[in-house]
Design a protein around this nucleic acid. Structure first.
Lengths: 217, 217
DNA sequence: CGCGGTTTAGGGAAAACCCTCAATAATGGC
DNA sequence: GCCATTATTGAGGGTTTTCCCTAAACCGCG
């Protein structure tokens, strides 16, 4: 029984490298590649792989949000985050979104296959260096019972917020999501109202703090 | 005659992927790997490869500085930059440092082998999307010196940029600086034109990168 | 003294903003 | 199954802001 894998990363050369490395494993097969979050969600629906290797930072719809949507829709699909950064926000948000593993890109390749086998056995794999972040978060007890305003945003609103924070105009977003400009305006308004933020600049900073977008993209 | 290659990238998984991909080429051989700039320079001295694939962002000594040192010491060694970002500063500084090529990580693998063969033939290879940055730099004539785009901003423009990035509206800024709204609009336009950025979101990120404003405020 | 950059500013078109309203799901509780 | 809530979609219509082009006054430097 082969493990069917989807690779989501915005860098083609990374995808190609991972694919070649993974296909050397007799029981693994890369069945699809995606270069942004939206494509990832779409492809998951189409081909329902067992495992998704998900880059955290991707354009259009980031890895965290894509993970949230995938796990909500298909609880059986395992998502392994692959990131360059051991940043606390990314790690915690990714795990909260439902990822079963978090790997750093400077890990050895063997770690990836190990992580895949572990998550297939319903376990969780975290890169060394990521583990203590999670532990620290739990021991400091700052997490529980803090329904941040962010959680009141609907998935669609988060999506729109991310695109705004990426510099897209309302009409561009409307085009991307195939809905009317008026709909996006309503979403934007709703987001600004919920967050009590009334400028794109602060909205962008908020999105950065929440890990919805990134400085380098 | 095989081309001896050194891979410099701080992510092991990227190095492994590149190595496997490159070794499929009969005339290429990866003779060394380095995970930071200092190690790269040291290894180049030891084994003098023909080509160095150099990640731009590396710890300790970045790719730009490492390239500068390598090319100064061994003019015959070809350095190909491999970066995630088509950022103007990175591209121009890398080329000024003496790189013979600049590849984006989201390029196809075939581009890499093509680039290697081209630089071995004393040509330059730039990823599409990088070329126009260079061309624009030359036509706008602001090149030659090291001044980053940021330094072309006047003090007043930086002031306005910072206030924008802090979430102030144009009329608020006008009030603060005791000039008309129209004046601030012109400044904003001037800033956007100089930076080639056309949304407040990206302007905010730029200001964050340049340290003009901060996430926590 | 003119050249180039800075700072100032206006006019018109485009987009964002702000409010209200509303239809169609989908969700979740009773 | 029914009802309340929320999510997503979209419209109307008016105000404000941004965007883009143009341009004048100023100022330092060669």
């Amino acid at each position: 029984m082969t493990i069917r894998i989807l690779i989501a990363d915005d860098h083609q050369i990374v995808r190609q490298g991972l694919r070649i490395l993974l296909e050397k494993e007799p029981d693994m097969r890369v069945v699809a590649e995606a270069d942004d979050g939206r494509a990832t969600v779409r492809l998951v629906r189409e081909i329902s792989p067992e495992v998704v290797i998900m880059d955290v930072a991707m354009p259009d719809l980031n890895g965290i949000e894509a993970t949230r949507q995938i796990v909500a829709e298909f609880p059986k699909i395992k998502v392994i985050a692959l990131s360059m950064y051991a940043d606390q926000r990314f790690v915690l948000n990714m795990l909260k979104a439902g990822a079963s593993g978090y790997l750093l890109k400077d890990c050895a390749f063997e770690e990836l296959t190990r992580a895949i086998r572990l998550v297939m056995a319903h376990k969780t794999y975290l890169s060394p260096g990521v583990t203590d972040i999670v532990v620290k978060d739990y021991t400091s007890g700052n997490n529980s019972g803090k329904p941040s305003v962010f959680s009141t945003l609907s998935p669609r609103e988060r999506e729109v917020l991310q695109l705004m924070a990426e510099g897209k105009s309302t009409s561009q977003i409307a085009g991307l999501l195939h809905v009317s400009v008026k709909t996006i305006e309503t979403h934007r308004q709703q987001v600004m109202h919920k967050l009590n933020i009334h400028s794109v600049a602060e909205l962008t900073k908020y999105a950065l703090r929440e890990g919805l977008t990134f400085l380098e993209t």
